[in-house]
Simulated scan of single mutants.
Amino acid sequence: MNCRPACAACCTAPSISSPMPGLPHGKPAGMPCPHLDEALRCRLFGLPERPAVCGSLQPSQEMCGDSREQAMRWISELEQATR
């Protein structure tokens, strides 16, 4: 499965505890990653500065659902369950 254009739910809903450029303590849940471009694509994709957790999230029907809203809800629920 490929990422849905202009979604970025996986770059917004979860917290990221590892450091990244500009965020030495990571990113809180619900905050869009500051490394998203205008089309909501990752500017760090393929770079060593990209947190490993970002590369571990692979799009799936279960996670992404049929819309950005469904993806945000699913990932937010997972975030809550794993706090």
Rank of each mutant, 00 (worst) to 15 (best):
L78F: 09
M20R: 03
C64Y: 02
M31N: 03
D37R: 06
F45G: 03
S17L: 15
Q70H: 12
G22K: 04
E77W: 13
P48H: 11
A81V: 09
S17P: 11
C54T: 10
H35S: 06
L40Q: 02
E38V: 03
R41W: 08
G55W: 05
M31H: 08
S18E: 15
L57M: 10
P19W: 05
A8F: 04
L57W: 12
Q58V: 14
D37W: 09
Q61W: 13
C3S: 02
Q61V: 08
M63D: 02
C33N: 00
D66Q: 14
G26I: 00
C42K: 01
M1Q: 08
G30M: 11
I75G: 01
G30K: 03
S76A: 06
G30L: 07
C64A: 02
E77H: 11
E62W: 01
L47K: 14
S60M: 08
P21N: 09
G22V: 14
A39M: 12
L40I: 03
R4Q: 11
A71M: 07
C54V: 03
E69L: 11
F45K: 09
P24M: 10
L57K: 10
K27A: 05
S18Q: 11
N2K: 08
I16K: 04
L23I: 08
A81E: 04
E49P: 07
A8P: 04
F45R: 01
G55D: 09
L23G: 07
A8R: 06
P21K: 09
C54P: 06
F45H: 15
L36T: 00
E79W: 02
G46Y: 12
A6I: 05
P59D: 04
P59I: 02
D66P: 06
G65T: 08
L47M: 14
M1T: 09
R83N: 12
L23C: 00
M31Y: 03
S76D: 03
L23A: 12
E49G: 09
Q70A: 10
D37Q: 10
A13E: 00
